[in-house]
Design a protein around this nucleic acid. Structure first.
Lengths: 148, 148
DNA sequence: CTAATTTCTATTGATATCAATATATATAGT
DNA sequence: ACTATATATATTGATATCAATAGAAATTAG
């Protein structure tokens, strides 16, 4: 039996079909699984791959900018670094220019892991793009960029 | 000092700029924060809102199809239901037609919470769409759909 | 009909995510 | 210099995410 507080089923369908947040979470989960599966032999998840790749810079970056680049909360970055530090793939060390801060860098072993993962990313990404109609990938990147 | 295993910085920039998985994770995190913030007064996260809204159906659905709709692992759904069951917003009960399975339904209190959250979703989503160029939202939905 | 296989869900363990909060250092205002 | 404010990061607690695994029931092969 319905009552006045019920939400019409049509409204549910509308929310499901139009919610950009839901669509983004769905796509993010699906792509995460795709890349997690592909990168598993390299010992990395998609997030660890992105994080470590973002540390491959001429100068070790502080945590804040890295968190912003990945569009994640700073506390998430702190947590995400833990397993990478534990495995000896990333070093976190004091910033001599700002005693509040810390800088991040790949260790040589971390670089080896990342180097081994790179061709996996390349082939996985190429295969993914091939499933999309010509031009959609670039358009999608731009549209996603506008949200993050 | 560089060595033969180093990844060129230009490669890092290429991965950062082109990786659809990274772009999707970034956008998903940003949108999750946006809707989590907006829905907080209603006591829901974006994921809880989407899950509860997906349970507003004529017939209580089994878990499998709900997990598929949300493009999440079935174990994730089991876990996500826990806090909602604890608060008395969702009921999980045996499927009389399949003794392996369980069916999901909103409680009356859960329906009230969802009803209170709906206008928040509507205004938040309308504001979000207004920040996007005309037509981009629909295009983005279709592009995201192709990935999930 | 029985055995093998598949399907549906739960549990455990590891990681990811963020809010709330706390601490230390830097910067700005006076 | 001193004080107030802002910035950079860490910790805790709750929830989210999935792999690996396991159990129970349904389905299929024979």
């Amino acid at each position: 039996m319905s009552n006045a507080t019920d939400i019409p089923f049509a409204t549910t369908l509308l929310v499901r079909d139009t919610c950009l947040c839901l669509h983004a979470q769905r796509a993010a989960r699906a792509l995460a699984r795709l890349f997690d599966d592909a990168l598993r032999p390299a010992g990395l998840t998609n997030g660890q791959f992105s994080l470590m790749m973002s540390l491959n810079r001429p100068e070790p970056p502080p945590m804040g900018p890295v968190a912003k680049l990945l569009a994640m909360d700073q506390t998430t970055l702190t947590a995400a670094l833990k397993p990478l530090q534990r495995r000896g793939w990333v070093e976190v060390f004091p910033n001599p220019r700002d005693k509040r801060g810390r800088l991040l860098r790949l260790t040589p072993e971390g670089m080896r892991v990342l180097t081994a993962a790179l061709p996996i990313w390349e082939s996985t990404h190429a295969a993914l793009e091939k499933t999309l109609p010509e031009g959609n990938a670039e358009r999608l990147r731009q549209d996603l960029q506008a949200l993050a």
